[in-house]
């Protein structure tokens, strides 16, 4: 068949297009980076006000992490917000790049990869802010902090794996992106991100410990606040789950390429 390009060129494209994606997402708007920072900041302020002042969880002894609530919140919420936005946008990646796919012999997965890369860069910037904020709030840095970017990378690979699947489904069923948004809300509230895990009934806590999305966020909290490494089993899960999903996603994209191109 015709595809003449090699994967090296695709990776070059993914890297440069990922940077361009971020640039156009934030720098081209009138508010510039303001909006990039404001959106998660606003949510952090909102959740902090509601949960730390109204429910005052520190006083109830529910906090198993020895850190202010706002730090506890930020460490999980910032990566989650970027993750969820990444999943939502990447689900539309194939449809959004139809103008390329209609006219160039390109594999569909590169557009999903480009979108995820852009969000990984965004996530790294956000994470630096979180670390600086945690330090200011009195959390002592440890060597485990250096491991956190790898967890962040695995978290983004999880998003990549998920969106390789959802982006193809979205070509066939337009409602996929709406369904994804709804599912992200459900996943958000199913994890102790804004509330403490101790308020969850005991029977559910074990399930939460193995929540396929929460394991990454919990790992980040353990690394930063407790200065502890998550259990090897959880770390293994953090590595295996994204790669299994990526394998399924790429296989699905290849299997359905003919139909995807016909529809686009």
């Amino acid at each position: 068949m015709s595809g003449y390009q090699n994967h090296t060129n695709y990776f070059e494209y993914i890297i440069s297009a990922g940077k361009d994606h971020l640039k156009h997402k934030f720098l081209d708007s009138a508010g510039g980076l303001f909006w990039a920072v404001f959106n998660p900041l606003f949510q952090i302020i909102l959740f902090s006000l509601v949960f730390s002042n109204i429910f005052m969880p520190e006083k109830t002894g529910l906090n198993s992490f020895d850190a202010p609530y706002v730090v506890y919140l930020c460490i999980a919420l910032v990566p989650w917000l970027i993750f969820s936005e990444s999943v939502y946008e990447s689900t539309n990646a194939i449809m959004d790049n139809g103008y390329y796919l209609k006219k160039m012999p390109l594999p569909t997965w590169i557009f999903v990869a480009k979108c995820n890369l852009a969000f990984f860069i965004y996530s790294c910037i956000g994470w630096i802010c979180v670390l600086v904020f945690s330090f200011i709030m009195g959390v002592q840095p440890t060597l485990w902090w250096l491991i956190s970017p790898f967890i962040l990378l695995l978290f983004q690979l999880l998003a990549f794996g998920i969106t390789l699947i959802t982006s193809v489904l979205n070509v066939f069923i337009k409602d996929t992106s709406h369904g994804t948004a709804l599912l992200l809300q459900l996943i958000f509230w199913s994890m102790p991100l804004v509330y403490y895990v101790n308020i969850v009934p005991l029977i559910l806590r074990t399930i939460i410990d193995y929540h396929p999305v929460y394991i990454y966020l919990n790992a980040l909290r353990s690394l930063i606040i407790k200065g502890e490494c998550p259990s090897p089993l959880l770390l293994l899960a953090c590595v295996v789950i994204p790669f299994v999903l990526i394998w399924i996603g790429i296989s699905l994209q290849k299997h359905m390429e003919k139909d995807v191109r016909d529809i686009i």
């Binding site: 390009q5 090699n6 070059e12 494209y13 440069s16 297009a17 390329y100 160039m104």
Partner: peptide, 10 residues
């Protein structure tokens, strides 16, 4: 540049 890279040009 964007399309050129996608088409496999350095």
């Amino acid at each position: 540049f964007q399309s050129g890279k996608l088409l496999g040009y350095s």
